[in-house]
Amino acid sequence: MEKRTCAAVQILVSCNPQDAVLGGGNADLRKIGFLWATGDLDGATTYGEDSEVAKQVMGSDVTAAQRKEIMRRWSKGQTEGTLEPYSIGSKSARGKAKQFLSDQWSILTGDTNASTAVLGSYTAKYKILRANSYGVQARITINNNMTISPFAHIATGYGTAADHAVQRYDNDGIVTLGHAGTSHYMTITFRTVIVN
């Protein structure tokens, strides 16, 4: 049955296991955030499609919107590129405050947007790996650096002198607390099937 299914619908992720990027473990983004805050993370990790981090990102409202954007671009012949960035900084002051409260609720409850709340602003790239009359299989890749300044934005603002001052010390974390908050570079990558 699997061979017949894959012959008809090659865009299914299960039909192309050789293209999977795996790894990153079972910790969700809330736990990753806690480990980052205590200084217990490596400097860089790739979170593949089997990781809890990638699964959380796949289920977010931002990724749902990105899937639609990929299909719009594919209909125009674009097979790869940078997706519209998710940016809290571009919101109004009221929008930022509302987003901050929403993010705190998502982190507290672990809802479908907990990944967006922990990651903050980020940019994703996509590449269509396969396409047919059913739709496309695309790889989405997010490169994000977990640092102190995004978590401080509610106090420092965006692009202010206080924000720049915090950014100067971002990579080393809080030295007096055992380098808690040391920069953690994340590559989150997964394949997704988007049907017509």
Rank of each mutant, 00 (worst) to 15 (best):
residue 73 R to M: 10
residue 27 A to S: 14
residue 188 I to D: 10
residue 136 V to E: 03
residue 27 A to G: 12
residue 3 K to D: 15
residue 186 M to W: 02
residue 146 M to S: 07
residue 130 R to D: 15
residue 15 C to V: 09
residue 47 Y to M: 01
residue 22 L to K: 05
residue 29 L to Y: 06
residue 1 M to D: 15
residue 131 A to F: 09
residue 1 M to T: 12
residue 91 K to M: 11
residue 50 D to L: 03
residue 147 T to L: 13
residue 141 T to I: 03
residue 110 G to P: 08
residue 181 G to Y: 06
residue 33 G to I: 05
residue 77 G to I: 00
residue 26 N to G: 11
residue 143 N to W: 02
residue 65 A to T: 10
residue 128 I to C: 03
residue 186 M to Q: 13
residue 68 K to N: 10
residue 117 A to M: 03
residue 91 K to E: 14
residue 56 Q to W: 05
residue 100 F to G: 03
residue 175 V to N: 08
residue 83 L to E: 10
residue 95 G to T: 04
residue 117 A to G: 00
residue 146 M to G: 05
residue 43 G to P: 07
residue 194 I to V: 15
residue 190 F to S: 05
residue 88 I to Y: 08
residue 44 A to N: 12
residue 169 Y to M: 11
residue 30 R to C: 10
residue 8 A to E: 14
residue 155 A to W: 14
residue 179 H to E: 06
residue 126 Y to F: 15
residue 84 E to M: 10
residue 162 A to D: 15
residue 95 G to S: 01
residue 69 E to G: 03
residue 25 G to S: 09
residue 11 I to S: 02
residue 121 S to I: 02
residue 18 Q to E: 15
residue 142 I to T: 13
residue 136 V to Q: 08
residue 144 N to S: 04
residue 140 I to F: 09
residue 129 L to Q: 12
residue 24 G to R: 02
residue 112 T to F: 00
residue 14 S to E: 14
residue 51 S to C: 08
residue 177 L to T: 13
residue 62 V to K: 01
residue 52 E to C: 01
residue 159 G to Q: 11
residue 147 T to K: 10
residue 130 R to A: 15
residue 99 Q to T: 13
residue 170 D to P: 13
residue 1 M to H: 12
residue 4 R to A: 15
residue 24 G to D: 07
residue 190 F to E: 08
residue 119 L to Y: 02
residue 133 S to T: 13
residue 100 F to P: 00
residue 10 Q to G: 15
residue 156 T to C: 07
residue 39 G to Q: 05
residue 77 G to R: 01
residue 15 C to R: 01
residue 147 T to W: 03
residue 150 P to A: 12
